[in-house]
Nucleic acid binder design. Structure first.
Length: 413
DNA sequence: GTACCTTTGAAGCAA
DNA sequence: TTGCTTCAAAGGTAC
């Protein structure tokens, strides 16, 4: 069992965010992971099992009478499936096509499990190319993560989340350099993990140092840091080196002209309203009014798996030519289980730091604050869908009977 | 325009 | 303490 650095290097010893269940997760998944790794032969297996699981699910439900303990509920499901069978299968077919398309792609059939994971943690470790005038970006290592390779060579002013894959990097506008003048800070890549509220500044330790040196060794394929040495603070810079980027930001108050909106902060509409440089085009008065009118939603910090998905999604899309997030997430879920404990530990650690930082920045925030923000179907409706009332993205009928997939690797199922 | 699907994990809440 | 529910991301799909 990996011993996570529950202390996390944070001072005060109050860091109990080490999520004891993370360790439990390792415990529970240990044997299963081994099985998964043994059986993880590559994307073909990923996709084939995904396909077969979908088929089995339908067939199993249709033949539910043979399942021990299967009663009226299974019969009802089977009946419902039977009624909809003809029409619902177009989705699996479509999925199959997608999967097979993915298999045709040579890059999809190679090395899905072989390559080193660019851990989110390692991505945090890397430093952006120096942004001095007249300096040319040094050669970047071959990162699959497109988000780490801004096509325009200008370091992205991206939050922590954007360290991870962005399948559709925003093309640089022609006047990008000009627009960047409006950016309050030319702290690329590492900027804006979380913007600080005005009141939270004092609660942070002297330097909320984003781990440096890294707690985990850089993977051989992640030599980003070697290529881009830590930026040296400009003379007179108000912040020390290795200070957490959030400290480099403006007031951090959402809507404040000098603030960089954190992805955890979204307008009530649920969408990021403006890019930083777009926002800067607004007058301060307008921004102030807007801030008063729209109280942004502070979103939950991402958990380990979400961070993993962020990083790996683009890679899976590229390798398997899949687009449906539901299918991609299934693959990612299985890959997650196939990860070694050490690799998972990186993400757990990163997620722990996310939560810690989130807690520091938004002391009064609770996950409960966002309850009900999403308009979700009623529970009754949800149950209806589970019993055959509505098909899912794959044309199958989700049922709680399939829930063990949430707790067991699909390779075991 | 918006909910759903799918995944795992964290957190909240009721019993 | 246990079990259930909601939300976090993502983008195609359906309504």
């Amino acid at each position: 069992m990996p011993q996570l650095d529950s202390g996390g290097g944070s001072a005060g010893g109050g860091d109990d965010l080490g999520a004891p269940d993370e360790l439990l997760a390792f415990q529970d998944e240990g044997e299963e992971q081994d099985k998964s790794r043994d059986s993880a032969a590559g994307p073909e297996r990923d996709l084939a099992e995904l396909k077969s699981s979908l088929v089995n699910e339908s067939e199993g439900a249709a033949g539910g009478a043979g399942v021990p303990g299967a009663g009226a509920e299974a019969e009802v499901r089977a009946e419902a499936l039977g009624r909809e069978h003809a029409s619902q299968r177009h989705f699996p077919d479509k999925l199959s096509e997608s999967l097979e398309d993915g298999l045709k792609a040579p890059e999809c059939a190679s090395g899905m499990y072989k390559e080193t994971v660019y851990s989110a943690f390692n991505l945090l470790m890397h430093y952006p190319p120096p942004s001095g005038a007249g300096q040319h970006p040094q050669p970047q290592p071959q990162l699959h993560n497109k988000a780490s390779q801004p096509p325009h060579g200008v370091p992205q002013l991206s939050p922590l989340y954007e360290h991870f894959s962005s399948p559709h990097p925003t093309p640089a506008p022609a006047d990008i350099s000009q627009k960047q003048v409006h950016r309050p800070l030319q702290t690329p890549d590492l900027s804006g993990f979380y913007s600080l509220t005005s009141g939270s500044m004092g609660q942070l330790p002297h330097t909320v140092s984003w781990p440096s040196p890294p707690l985990y060794p850089l993977s051989p394929s992640c030599g980003y840091r070697q290529h881009f040495p830590a930026p040296t603070a400009a003379p007179g810079a108000p912040y020390p080196r290795f200070t957490h980027p959030s400290l480099m930001l403006g007031s951090g108050v959402p809507g404040h002209p000098a603030a960089i909106p954190h992805p955890a902060i979204v307008p009530p509409s649920g969408k990021q309203e403006l890019q930083p440089y777009d926002r800067s085009l607004k007058t301060q008065a307008e921004a102030k009014v807007e801030k008063e009118v729209k109280k942004p939603t502070i979103k939950k910090p991402l958990n380990a798996f979400m961070l993993y998905m962020k990083e790996m999604r683009a890679k899976v899309i590229a390798e398997c030519t899949l687009k449906e997030s539901a299918a991609i997430n299934q693959i990612l879920g299985r890959r997650w289980h196939a990860l070694s404990r050490e690799e998972q530990a990186k993400y757990y650690e990163l997620a722990r730091k996310e939560r810690q930082l989130h807690m520091q920045l938004y002391p009064g925030w609770s996950a409960r604050d966002n309850y009900g923000k999403k308009k979700r179907r009623s529970r009754e409706k949800h149950q209806e869908s589970n019993t055959g009332g509505k098909r899912n993205a794959f044309g199958t009928y989700p049922e709680k009977a399939a829930a063990p997939a949430q707790f067991l690797p699909m390779t075991v199922l």
